[in-house]
Simulated scan of single mutants.
Amino acid sequence: MRPSALLLLLPLCLLARPAHAQDPIHHCVDTHGNPLFTDQPCASQQASPVQAPAPVASVATPGLPTPLQRCASTAAELRQRVIDAFAARDPNELAGLMLWHGYGHVSAVDDIRALARLVRQPLLEIHFGGDPGDDPASADGGAAAVADELQLRTGDDGARFAITRQAGCLWLRYGG
Rank of each mutant, 00 (worst) to 15 (best):
P3V: 05
S4D: 11
A5D: 15
L6I: 05
L6H: 02
L7E: 10
L10V: 08
C13P: 00
L14W: 12
L14M: 07
L15P: 02
A16S: 14
R17G: 09
R17F: 06
P18I: 10
A19C: 07
H20A: 13
A21E: 06
D23K: 10
P24S: 04
H26W: 15
H27A: 12
C28M: 03
C28P: 03
D30A: 05
H32Y: 11
H32W: 07
G33N: 10
G33P: 05
N34W: 12
N34V: 08
P35E: 09
P35C: 07
P35S: 08
T38C: 07
S44H: 02
S44T: 06
P49Q: 07
A54K: 11
A54H: 10
P55F: 08
S58C: 06
S58K: 14
V59P: 00
G63N: 15
L64D: 13
P65I: 04
C71G: 13
A72W: 14
A72E: 07
S73G: 05
T74E: 03
E77P: 04
E77G: 10
L78P: 01
R81M: 09
V82G: 01
D84N: 15
F86P: 02
P91L: 08
G96R: 14
G96S: 12
G96L: 07
L97M: 10
M98F: 11
A114G: 06
A114C: 07
A116S: 15
A116D: 15
L118D: 00
L118G: 00
V119E: 03
R120Y: 05
R120V: 05
Q121V: 02
L124G: 04
E125R: 08
E125Q: 09
I126S: 00
H127C: 01
F128G: 00
G130N: 13
D131L: 07
D135Y: 05
P136Y: 04
P136E: 02
A137G: 01
A137H: 00
A137E: 00
A137L: 03
A143W: 11
A143E: 13
A147H: 02
D148N: 15
E149Q: 14
L150F: 09
R153K: 08
G155V: 02
G155D: 03
D157Q: 11
A159S: 09
R160S: 13
I163F: 07
R165L: 11
Q166T: 10
A167R: 15
G168M: 13
W171M: 04
L172W: 13
Y174K: 03
Y174E: 01
G175P: 01
G175A: 14
G176H: 07
